[in-house]
Design a protein around this nucleic acid. Sequence first.
DNA 1: AACGAAACCTACCGCGTTACAGGTAACGGG
DNA 2: CCCGTTACCTGTAACGCGGTAGGTTTCGTT
Lengths: 192, 192
Amino acid sequence: MPYGDAMNARVRSEERRAEIVRAALEVIAERGYRGASLAAVAERVGLTQQGLLHYFPTKEALLVAVLKERDQWDAVPATRWRIDLLASLVEYNAMRPGIIQTFSALLGESVTEGHPARGYFTDRYRQVRESMAAVLRTEYGDRLPNGLTPERTAPLLVAVMDGLQYQWLLDPDAVDMPGAFRDFLALLGEEA
Amino acid sequence: MPYGDAMNARVRSEERRAEIVRAALEVIAERGYRGASLAAVAERVGLTQQGLLHYFPTKEALLVAVLKERDQWDAVPATRWRIDLLASLVEYNAMRPGIIQTFSALLGESVTEGHPARGYFTDRYRQVRESMAAVLRTEYGDRLPNGLTPERTAPLLVAVMDGLQYQWLLDPDAVDMPGAFRDFLALLGEEA
DNA sequence: AACGAAACCTACCGCGTTACAGGTAACGGG
DNA sequence: CCCGTTACCTGTAACGCGGTAGGTTTCGTT
């Protein structure tokens, strides 16, 4: 079983799948998961709905692929984050409304009964809180204002990021997301 | 035009409408607005879908009624809020997951294109930010930590409330929503 | 050149959705 | 007692949805 050109087909298939996932991200941003139709995603990559089902046998399978992509996306810098990089991330996000909108819509839907992304988000947030607590500890040690521990502060940090995103998506001109986030970080920088 | 019993019919009708709105709140909490079918709402109040349309001519009209109810709901204490009442509100919310879930799901959906609740939330958040800024000013004056102004702090306050709600809805056991919110308030209480 | 698999497409099914049309029974006011 | 309004219901139109079945073309391998 030679590899040489057998890979070509595989690579092309993988590229097509990635293309589809990208389109799905867009459509979900515009309509949410429930509102996103396979046909709309398919059209965006020049396929019929049934053609799309050749790559992802069900709508849920496509969603799983979307979520997996997301994991991969920020798994890279997850190794060692620092507070200032976090601020940069928010700034970066402010230039990519699409991605934010996708996952804000998804997060909102996920609190709904029987939503296929619910488990994903539950796990993810638990993980993110832990990760943020670690970041806070390496940055500030246990010397956070008001006797707060990193573990108790982490949910706040995450909440601020998410909450600001919603306000910003609804009214970008009224909310300076990166600025507000820096304000919050400054609040944590204060010595008790 | 005598009022006496003419009111009876009107009252009964109004009660029915309120009943329907209540059912709609539930169904939206469970499935979101897009996922909520008129038939499901109707069934919950013992009507057919067409019977429901007698009270609300379109699905969107029903949503508008739901949002109006919400406005009325917290318009009462909006006259004069204080920080400690805010903490109590969060505590109260923690005992009513249903309502929170309804509006968290709705907020998530609303960032989506052409969602009928988008305008509502945009206006509302602008208003809430103003209101919160006023609360912060009466509580702390302009003496917030780190030279923050009430206007710059308000978005953070709102973001924390919303963000905590999502984390809490996804994993109630892992997140102490009222406690975390108090932590945040304590952060603001620190003198610069 | 032949073959087998991958990459699509057409056709179709069954269901759920909002909304419209029109009918009917109850009920309250004159 | 009549009559108009209110409060529903049945029937149905029109459409979009996810998913299945099965065929056909394309293409790399042998």
